[in-house]
Design a protein around this nucleic acid. Structure first.
Lengths: 106, 106
DNA sequence: TATACGTGCAACCGTTCGGCTGCGCAAATT
DNA sequence: AATTTGCGCAGCCGAACGGTTGCACGTATA
């Protein structure tokens, strides 16, 4: 059973849940009202999101409020950093090429 | 057949391919050398990545170089922006609360 | 021209995914 | 004490996933 953030956010329903919960912590029932899906299926999604630490359940009586763990979202951002760096490097090389051309013209 | 960026980067092999190709455009064979997977399977991944515009094929004789389309990566970043904004709002509200407490103390 | 090479496509197969229903359990309400 | 409510778990099922093999086709090389 693969269970990483990228697999978690691959599903559109789960992405929508994350957005919902980002605004304020919500219970499974409250979340389910926003979708055309049975509560149990939402529960499955919440389980997956919790398992990879994107959500944290907070019990309150017989209700469970799921809260977004924003820090975990940063991991996606960190992954994107690689490409930002690589691209930066590419531009540096491009700059060098342009610089060389410039000098040749002299 | 779902086919969006998030589903594309859900697979670890595809993420690795993106990193490889980010450094320099590569052919399917060259990419396949980095994995314990048949060339045809890599081709499948390249097809998926191309279909959602993360990669662009450039034919050169009988070889095909796949190049990263960095712009498409920004879409992920754009999605993350929602959360950055929401969190910013939360902090503002927190600031207000703290401000109110502060004033009450006076 | 015949052969080797680089590639994509089609068909197959076991596993995973994402819905569903039915159930049991604990907390709240009556 | 009995009932309602909120929830998670287990099992089912069709579809999608990610690997495989075999093949066809265009391009380079002998």
């Amino acid at each position: 059973m693969r269970r990483d953030i990228f697999q978690a956010i691959a599903d559109p329903t789960r992405r929508a849940i994350l957005v919902l919960v980002a605004v304020q912590a919500m219970t499974p029932n409250a979340i389910a009202e926003h979708f055309d899906i049975r509560r149990q299926s939402i529960s499955k999604h919440l389980r997956i999101l919790s398992e990879c630490d994107l959500l944290v359940p907070r019990q309150e009586g017989r209700e469970i409020f799921y809260e977004l763990k924003i820090d975990k979202m940063k991991e996606i951002d960190t992954w994107l950093d690689q490409f930002r760096k690589i691209m930066e490097e590419s531009f540096k090389q491009l700059d060098e090429v342009l610089f060389t051309i410039k000098n040749k013209k002299k």
